[in-house]
Design a protein around this nucleic acid. Structure first.
Length: 509
RNA sequence: GGCGGCGUAGCUCAGUUGGUCAGAGCAUCCGGCUCAUAAUCGGAAGGUCAUCGGUUCAAGUCCGAUCGCCGCUACCA
């Protein structure tokens, strides 16, 4: 048993051809909450996000903008970092694929795979649109006025090209991948997403090309600088770069293998098939896990520029508050399935769980403590009926975070909120005269709020801290540990309990 | 076409290896309470568990068919 357990989580790195939107925010918030939870568990945490800045599209976008690819990327990348600051994302590193450290790591893994004999020169043949500077597969091409094989964008015939490319021999890894997954059946979560990935492998694997001579904006192959690698060996490798791979030491082994790659369902093939095969070739352990999410739809449609429904998460914060937004995204979507983002849903969830249940509970407790306990926090009853509810809440919350199911984890935590409201109704302390019985009931409520503050802090960090302070606890809620500090009876009485303004003002529908 | 998945109360969904599994939250209705952000608490109503047919002493839970919906089908980050 290691004395310190480590927990390393990544988001995909986001392509800088677009500004941050709700989809990026969704994955990043899930990762943030998950890693905050593990910090509560006492784990040493590494949470990585960043930007993917190479490739043809960036090269082209820069040309259109009359600038260099680097300058173009330099413009966009900070917008992601700034968005994550606004969303209170506690990332530990922000990697950009244009950084020198990343070039070293990409060169290192390429060289290892090349030395292993899994990268070979071959001929790539395909139909190529000169205007797009891209290859198309047959089913992407369209027929126009009887002329077959036309580019769907430029509506003109494509040309047949052959190009010398280096290929990664993915086809050699089918059995090894299946064996590995057979030995690690819970690596991909949720399970049904994992099954889909296994289906991809069983369907047969083809080699894929990893370099282009036409492309300039990327990392040159160490043994053949006329070729530039793209996408796979570039983007995926960031997960190694950030923990020190390629820096000449073996320091990356402190963090590797990564605990979870958080990914969207659209990039399962790359992350769950290509990536572990590349790592195997390079003599590196595959990831311990993948947490595969669905898409966050907007009004039940996929967000896209053309449908004009792109949601900027930062716009919502002004309306609903940072924690309200974070909570909605986490609580209202089953991770792994598509979620549906609607303003009505946001308001409904916010009012029900945050304003009515938690926020109102904090307010009523503060008021009664003010009237019946002199405004000073009292000790809970060690044998309170709420103690068992709290223990169950802690246990279930822990289990669901372990399954990377934030919505269920929060629901489990909220069981304690609901039970505490009911506990007050059952005892009606506002009707009783001040005394030991009222003190105990209010102590129970304060203690429940204390535990809830800890359990909810991964989702609503700033409000959790506010609750913590209002009920008279000192220090930071983030310094608490689960389960030691979520055991019943940890509330420190004797401090002033403050009502304050509503934590979550109720919203009009 | 191929492979895979889904279809459980108005809504969002839970339901391990078949035997209190017919549930939760929200919404609705009724009642209580008034400490609280017109919040809260209790109760009720509501589902032939897509359809049909099998296996079984027993099936949302297994098998087959049908209808409907969806994902993947590969060098795009």
């Amino acid at each position: 048993m290691p004395t310190v357990s480590r927990f390393y989580v990544t988001t995909p790195i986001y392509y800088v051809n677009a500004e941050p939107h709700l989809g990026h925010a969704y994955t990043t918030i899930v990762g943030d909450a998950l890693t905050r939870w593990h910090r509560l568990l006492g784990d040493e945490v590494m949470y990585l996000t960043g930007t993917d800045e190479h490739g043809l599209k960036i090269q082209q976008a820069a040309e259109e903008a009359g600038t260099t690819p680097q300058a173009f990327a330099d413009e966009i990348a900070p917008k992601f970092a700034a968005a994550w600051e606004r969303l209170d994302i506690a990332y530990d590193d922000f990697i950009r694929t244009t950084e020198p450290r990343h070039y070293k790591a990409v060169e290192e893994i390429l060289q290892r795979c090349y030395d292993a004999g899994d990268i070979e020169l071959d001929t790539f043949a395909g139909k190529y649109c000169v205007s797009c500077e891209e290859y198309y597969s047959d089913d992407e091409l369209i027929t126009i006025d009887g002329v077959p094989d036309c580019c769907p964008i430029h509506r003109r015939p494509v040309e047949y090209f052959e190009e010398e490319n280096y290929f990664f021999r993915l086809s050699r890894f089918e059995d090894r991948l299946l064996d590995w997954y057979a030995q690690h059946p819970t690596a991909m979560k949720p399970e049904h997403r994992g099954n889909e990935a296994l289906g991809l492998i069983k369907g047969g694997l083809r080699d894929f090309s990893i370099s282009r001579t036409s492309l300039k904006w990327g990392v040159p192959l160490p043994w053949d600088p006329n070729h530039v690698t793209y996408v796979w060996f570039d983007a995926l490798t960031n997960y190694l770069t950030a923990v020190g791979f390629g820096d000449g030491t073996e320091g990356y082994e402190k963090w590797w293998p990564v605990d979870y790659h958080l990914i969207g369902k659209d990039i399962v093939r790359q992350h769950c098939v290509y990536w572990p095969a590349m790592l195997m070739s390079a003599g590196i352990d595959p990831p311990k896990g993948w947490a595969i999410g669905g898409w966050l739809l907007v009004d039940n449609e996929k967000m896209s520029k053309t449908s004009g429904n792109v949601v900027n998460p930062l716009d919502l914060i002004d309306d609903i508050g940072l924690d309200g937004f974070r909570y909605y995204v986490l609580a209202d979507t089953a991770y792994g399935n598509d979620g549906d983002f609607t303003y009505d849903g946001l308001v409904a969830r916010y009012n029900a769980d945050l304003a009515n249940n938690l926020g109102n509970l904090a307010a009523r407790v503060a008021t009664v403590v003010g009237k019946k306990c002199g405004g000073v926090g009292t000790a809970p009853n060690p044998d309170s009926a709420l103690a068992a509810v709290a223990a169950t809440a802690v246990e279930d919350t822990t289990r669901w975070w372990d399954e990377v199911q934030p919505s269920r984890a929060l629901d489990a935590s909220w069981q304690l909120v609901r039970a505490t409201n009911a506990h007050l109704e059952a005892n009606e302390p506002w009707k009783a005269d001040p005394g030991p019985e009222v003190d105990a009931v209010m102590g129970d409520a304060l203690e429940a709020l204390r535990i809830v503050a800890i359990l909810a802090s991964p989702a609503i960090p700033s409000t959790a801290q506010a609750v913590w302070e209002r009920i008279g606890q000192t220090g930071a809620v983030t310094d608490q540990r689960v389960p030691a500090d979520t055991a019943w009876g940890g509330y420190q009485p004797g401090a002033d309990v403050i009502k304050g303004a509503p934590l979550f003002p109720r919203l009009k529908a």
